[in-house]
């Protein structure tokens, strides 16, 4: 059941990342629905599950949008795993603001790594310009989107927990 929910979110991310959010850009920047979802899943799922979801969402992102196959897949896998691990260690209780802050920081970190690795392939992006004008804004935008993801996932997580009991 959980994986049906993840599949639905994957379809929604694919459907809207390159379509609807082209019309909803903020300062010329779109959020990363794939990454935001993976980070939000880390608040509700265990490390392995989040890592797997991260890998699948990252791979889908690479296939449909990304430049280098596997870059996002590996990156999201790591992000998902370590966030879920960190959440279980450091966050016993959290609310939507904590989620938004974590999504912002995780987004900035992930996108910075992505950009740094991309520079190895010499795609000609100015690092500081991209960091200030794209990554920071994207982090904020992801944090806003994460609020929606969080509430939906929370509802389903509670439902799944009830079902498990």
């Amino acid at each position: 059941m959980k994986y049906i929910l993840h599949s639905v979110f994957l379809v929604l991310c694919v459907a809207f990342q390159a379509t609807l959010f082209n019309f909803l850009e903020i300062a010329g920047v779109k959020p990363s629905l794939f990454l935001t979802y993976v980070i939000c899943v880390a608040f509700f799922a265990k490390e392995r599950e989040t890592a797997f979801i991260g890998f699948i969402f990252g791979l889908a992102f690479d296939f449909l949008i990304g430049q280098k196959i596997g870059l996002s897949a590996v990156l999201y896998l790591l992000v998902g795993y370590f966030l879920a691990l960190g959440r279980s260690y450091f966050l016993s209780g959290y609310n939507v603001i904590v989620v938004a802050v974590v999504v912002f920081l995780a987004s900035v970190l992930t996108e910075t790594i992505y950009l740094f690795v991309s520079l190895v392939w010499r795609n000609g992006i100015g690092f500081w310009f991209a960091f200030v004008h794209v990554i920071m804004i994207k982090g904020l935008y992801n944090a806003i989107i994460a609020v929606i993801d969080y509430f939906i996932l929370k509802k389903f997580a509670l439902a799944f927990a009830d079902a498990d009991r």
Partner: peptide
């Protein structure tokens, strides 16, 4: 899926 979403969002 993207085509449908694009038309809808347009």
């Amino acid at each position: 899926v993207q085509e449908g979403a694009y038309k809808l969002s347009s």
